[in-house]
Design a protein around this nucleic acid. Structure first.
Length: 560
DNA sequence: GGTAAGCTAAACACTC
DNA sequence: GGAGTGTTTAGCTTAC
C-alpha cells in the first residue's frame, strides 16, 4: 500500500515496489510477493533486435533509393531539378544506433569482481571472457558493416544524382547495389554464425539435446530468411514495376531461399565475388579474391568449413573456386544457411541462458556473500589481516563522532582501489550475514565514501543495518536532522538497491526509527524531523568485538 | 537452548 | 477515503 513518496528518485514504478524484498528474488516463508519483472535483455533479444534493426534500416535505404530514383525520373520528365534533393540525401543517412548494437556484456568492473571473487574456475572465467569477446566482435562487425553500408550507399546516391535520371546505367547500378547489399547482409549473418559455431566447437557453447530444431516462432523471430526474402522482393518488385518490359526475362527470383532456381548472372557473379571478400566490404572485384589474405572464415587448415562440406584444398585459390562454385547462392546453400541460422539461434539462446545463469549466480553471490569468520573486517583482505580487536589505532573516519569506548578500526582502512568482493570474503564460510557497519559501532561513512558510486549503481544490498544507514543519512545532512521523506530520498539516492522494494525498506526504516531510542523525533516548523542521539546509538551496541550483530536478510558484502 | 539483535511483514492509529 | 507517518507486535534468522 505504501507508495513512493520520494521526489528525487521516482523512477521506481509500482512494479519495482513489488519485487523481492530480500534482494534474493525469493519470497520468504512463502509470503505472497509478486515477481519483479525482469528487465534484462538477453543476447538473443539483442541479436534479434539488431537483425530487425538492420533489416529495417536496409529496407528504408532501399526504398528511399527507389523513391529517389523515381523522383529523379519525374524530375527529368519535368525538366527541372528538385530543391529537396539534398534533404533526401540527408534523410538517407540513417543513423546507426550504437546502443542498439551493444550486446549485453559484463562490464569490466563486474568482471573484475568475478575475478576477485574467484568463485569461478579459471576455465569458467575464460569461457566468460571469450563469450564476451564474441559478443563484442559481433557488435564490431555489425557496426562496421552498417557504417560502411551507409557510406557506400550515400556515395552511390550522390553519383546517381549526378547522372541523368532514367538512364539504363543508373538502373543497373541500383540493381547491383541491391545485390551487393543482399550479399553483405548474408555475409554478416554468416560471420555471426561462424563465430558462434566456433564458440560451439571450442566447447564454449553447447546445444542441448533435443533442441536441434527450433520452433517456428523462433524462426520468425529470427526472421532472417523471411525478412531478407521480403526485403528483396520489395526491392525487386518495385524495380520490376519500373522496368516495364523486363519483368519476364529478368529472371529475378529475389532472395528466394526456397526457390530451386538460383538467380542468374548478376546475382551469381556478385555472390561469387563477394564470397571471397568476407567482411571486407570492398566492392572491387579485384580485391575480393586477393590471395595475399589467404584467410577466410570458411577456410581453415586447408579444409572448407562450410557446414557439411569439409573439402580439402591445397591452396586458398582452390578453396575460393570451390566456394564460389559449390556454395553459390542456390537452394541447397540457402537451405544449409537456414539450418545454420537455426543452429546459431539455438546457440544464442543457449548463450543467453548461460548469461542469465551467470547473472543469477553473481546476484546470488552478492546477496549471499559472506565474510570470513576469522576476519571480522569486511572490506579487504589486508585490512582483515591487520585489523583486529587489538588494532584500533587505525585512522578514524572523518567527521563522524566516536565514543571513547568504541574501537575505531576503520572499515576501509586502505585506499588502494575500489573495494571489491574479495576471494577471501567468500572462502570457506557459510552464510554469515552480519552487517559490518555495526562492528565496533563503526560508522559507515568510510565504506560509503569509497564505494559510493558502487552502491549508487549496483543493485546490491548495502551491508549496513537500517539503523546505521538512517544514522548516516541524518549525520550527513547539514542540520543533522531529516524528515522521514528526506531519509527515504537519501536511501534511494545513495543505494540502487533501495530504488525498489520501497514498501519493504520504508517500512523497515520507520520501524527502526520508532524502535531505536537513538533516533529522536523532533517537532519542527516544517513538521517532524528525526535526529540521532549519538550516545544512545553507541550504547545500542555492546562493546564486544566478536559479538557482531548481524542481519538475517542483510548479507554482508564484506569487501565492497 | 536462551538471549540479543536485526529484518520483514502486518496491523493499527493519527494527520493531512 | 487515500496516502503518508508513526507505533507496535509477531515471526523469523543468526550469532553469541
Amino acid at each position: 500500500m505504501m507508495q513512493e513518496s520520494g521526489t528525487e528518485v521516482t523512477s521506481n514504478g509500482p512494479a519495482n515496489q513489488s519485487g523481492a524484498a530480500n534482494g534474493e528474488g525469493v519470497p520468504r516463508e512463502g509470503r505472497p510477493k509478486s515477481a519483479t519483472p525482469s528487465v534484462d535483455v538477453t543476447a538473443v533479444d539483442l541479436l534479434n533486435l539488431q537483425q530487425h534493426q538492420a533489416l529495417q534500416v536496409a529496407r528504408q535505404i532501399l526504398l528511399q533509393q527507389q523513391q529517389q530514383h523515381q523522383q529523379q525520373q519525374s524530375q527529368q520528365n519535368l525538366g527541372r531539378k528538385s530543391p529537396k534533393a539534398s534533404e533526401k540525401q540527408q534523410s538517407l543517412q540513417v543513423p546507426v544506433s550504437v546502443a542498439m548494437m551493444t550486446p549485453q556484456v559484463i562490464t569490466p568492473q563486474q568482471m573484475q569482481q568475478i575475478l576477485q571473487q574467484q568463485v569461478l574456475s579459471p576455465q569458467q572465467l575464460q569461457v566468460l571472457l571469450q563469450q564476451q569477446q564474441a559478443l563484442m566482435l559481433q557488435q564490431q562487425q555489425l557496426q562496421e558493416f552498417y557504417k560502411k553500408q551507409q557510406e557506400t550507399l550515400h556515395l552511390q546516391l550522390l553519383q546517381q544524382q549526378q547522372q541523368h535520371a532514367g538512364s539504363k546505367q543508373s538502373k543497373e547500378q541500383v540493381s547491383a547495389q541491391q545485390l551487393a547489399f543482399q550479399q553483405q547482409l548474408l555475409q554478416v549473418q554468416q560471420a555471426q554464425q561462424q563465430h558462434l559455431l566456433n564458440l560451439q566447437r571450442q566447447g564454449l557453447l553447447t546445444i542441448q539435446p533435443g533442441q536441434t530444431s527450433l520452433p517456428l516462432h523462433s524462426l520468425t523471430q529470427g526472421m532472417i530468411p523471411a525478412e531478407l526474402q521480403q526485403l528483396w522482393k520489395e526491392v525487386t518488385n518495385a524495380h520490376v514495376k519500373e522496368e516495364h518490359n523486363h519483368s519476364s526475362n529478368n529472371g529475378h527470383r529475389g532472395l528466394d531461399l526456397s526457390s530451386p532456381a538460383p538467380p542468374k548472372n548478376a546475382i551469381i557473379n556478385q555472390h561469387a565475388s563477394t564470397n571471397g571478400q568476407y567482411m571486407s566490404h570492398k566492392r572491387e572485384v579485384s580485391t575480393l579474391e586477393e590471395p595475399s589474405h589467404n584467410s577466410h572464415p570458411l577456410y581453415g587448415h586447408g579444409v572448407c568449413k562450410w557446414p557439411g562440406c569439409e573439402a580439402v584444398f591445397d591452396d586458398f585459390q582452390s578453396f575460393l573456386k570451390h566456394l564460389n562454385n559449390e556454395h553459390a547462392l542456390d537452394d541447397r546453400s540457402t537451405a544449409q544457411c537456414r539450418v545454420q541460422m537455426q543452429v546459431v539461434q539455438q546457440l544464442e539462446l543457449q548463450l543467453a541462458k548461460d548469461k542469465e545463469r551467470l547473472q543469477a549466480m553473481m546476484t546470488h553471490l552478492h546477496v549471499k556473500s559472506t565474510e570470513p569468520k576469522a576476519t571480522p573486517q569486511p572490506l579487504n583482505l589486508v585490512s582483515s589481516v591487520t585489523l583486529s580487536k587489538s588494532a584500533p589505532e587505525a585512522s578514524p573516519p572523518l567527521s563522524l563522532p566516536q565514543t571513547p569506548t568504541t574501537p575505531t578500526a576503520p572499515l576501509t582502512p586502505l585506499s588502494q582501489t575500489h573495494s571489491v568482493i574479495t576471494a577471501n570474503s567468500l572462502h570457506g564460510v557459510g552464510p554469515i550475514r552480519r552487517r559490518y557497519s555495526e562492528k565496533y559501532n563503526m560508522p559507515i561513512s568510510p565504506d560509503l565514501s569509497q564505494n559510493k558510486e558502487f552502491y549508487m549503481n549496483a543493485d546490491v544490498r548495502p551491508p549496513f543495518t537500517y539503523a546505521s544507514l538512517i544514522r548516516q543519512a541524518i549525520l550527513e545532512s547539514p542540520e543533522k536532522q531529516l524528515t522521514l521523506n528526506e531519509i527515504y530520498n537519501w536511501f534511494t539516492r545513495m543505494f540502487a538497491y533501495f530504488r525498489r522494494n520501497a514498501a519493504t525498506w520504508k517500512n523497515a526504516v520507520r520501524h527502526n526509527l520508532s524502535l531505536h531510542k537513538c533516533f529522536v523525533r523532533v517537532e519542527n516548523v516544517k513538521g517532524a524531523v528525526w535526529t540521532v542521539d549519538e550516545i544512545e546509538f553507541q550504547k545500542r551496541r555492546p562493546q564486544k568485538i566478536s559479538g557482531v550483530p548481524f542481519a538475517p536478510t542483510f548479507p554482508c558484502i564484506s569487501a565492497l
